[in-house]
Amino acid sequence: MERLHTTVELASVTKHYSHGVTALDNVTIGFHHGTFTAVMGPSGSGKSTLLQCAAGLDKPTSGHVVVDGRDLTRLSERKLTLLRRDRIGFVFQSFNLLPSLTAAQNVALPLRLAGRLPDPELVEQSLASVGLADRAAHRPAELSGGQQQRVAIARALVTRPAVLFGDEPTGALDTNTSRDVLRLLRSLVDKQAQTVVMVTHDPAAAAYADRVLFLADGRVCGELADPTPEAVASRMLTLEESC
Score class of each variant (00 low, 15 high):
Ser126Phe: 12
Arg74Leu: 09
Pro169Val: 14
Lys191Cys: 14
Lys59Cys: 04
Gly46Lys: 02
Val199Asp: 02
Arg139Pro: 03
Leu173Arg: 00
Ala231Thr: 10
Leu57Trp: 07
Val107Cys: 12
Thr22Ile: 03
Leu80Val: 01
Gly146Ser: 10
Arg87Gly: 00
His201Ser: 06
Lys47Ile: 01
Thr61Tyr: 15
Ala128Gly: 12
Leu4Ile: 04
Thr228Phe: 05
Thr200Gln: 14
Leu188Ile: 00
Ala193Asn: 15
Arg116Val: 12
Lys191Met: 14
His19Gln: 15
Val197Ala: 02
Ser45Ile: 15
Ala205Asn: 07
Ser178Asp: 02
Thr73Leu: 01
Gly30His: 05
Leu98Asp: 02
Asp71Thr: 09
Arg3Trp: 10
Pro99Trp: 07
Gln148Lys: 14
Asp167Met: 08
Gly145Met: 11
Val130Arg: 10
Pro120Gln: 08
Asp174Arg: 09
Leu50Arg: 06
Leu117Gln: 14
Leu72Ile: 13
Pro161His: 13
Arg74Trp: 00
Ile88Val: 11
Arg78Pro: 00
Pro60Gly: 10
Gln192Gly: 06
Asn106Asp: 03
Asn26Ile: 02
Phe92Ser: 06
Thr177Leu: 08
Thr6Arg: 15
Asp202Leu: 15
Ala136Thr: 10
Glu240Asn: 11
Thr49Arg: 11
Leu111Ile: 02
Pro227Ala: 13
Leu237Val: 12
Val232Asp: 04
Gly34Ile: 07
Arg84His: 14
Asp190Tyr: 06
Leu117Arg: 14
Arg84Thr: 08
Ala54Ile: 01
Thr6Gly: 03
Ala216Met: 12
Gly115Val: 01
Ser126Glu: 15
Ala216Ser: 09
Asn176Met: 05
Arg211Asn: 06
Lys191Gly: 09
Leu215Val: 11
Gly131Ser: 08
Arg112Val: 14
Pro60His: 05
Met1Asn: 12
Leu117Glu: 13
Leu143Ser: 02
Leu109Arg: 05
Ala206Asp: 03
Gly69Cys: 13
Leu122His: 03
Arg112Glu: 13
Leu109Met: 15
Thr49Cys: 04
Glu124Met: 14
Met236Thr: 01
Gln105Ser: 10
Ala128Met: 01
Asn26Pro: 03
Ala54Cys: 07
Leu224Ser: 11
Ala23Met: 08
Ala108Met: 11
Ala54Arg: 06
Leu82Phe: 10
Arg155Phe: 09
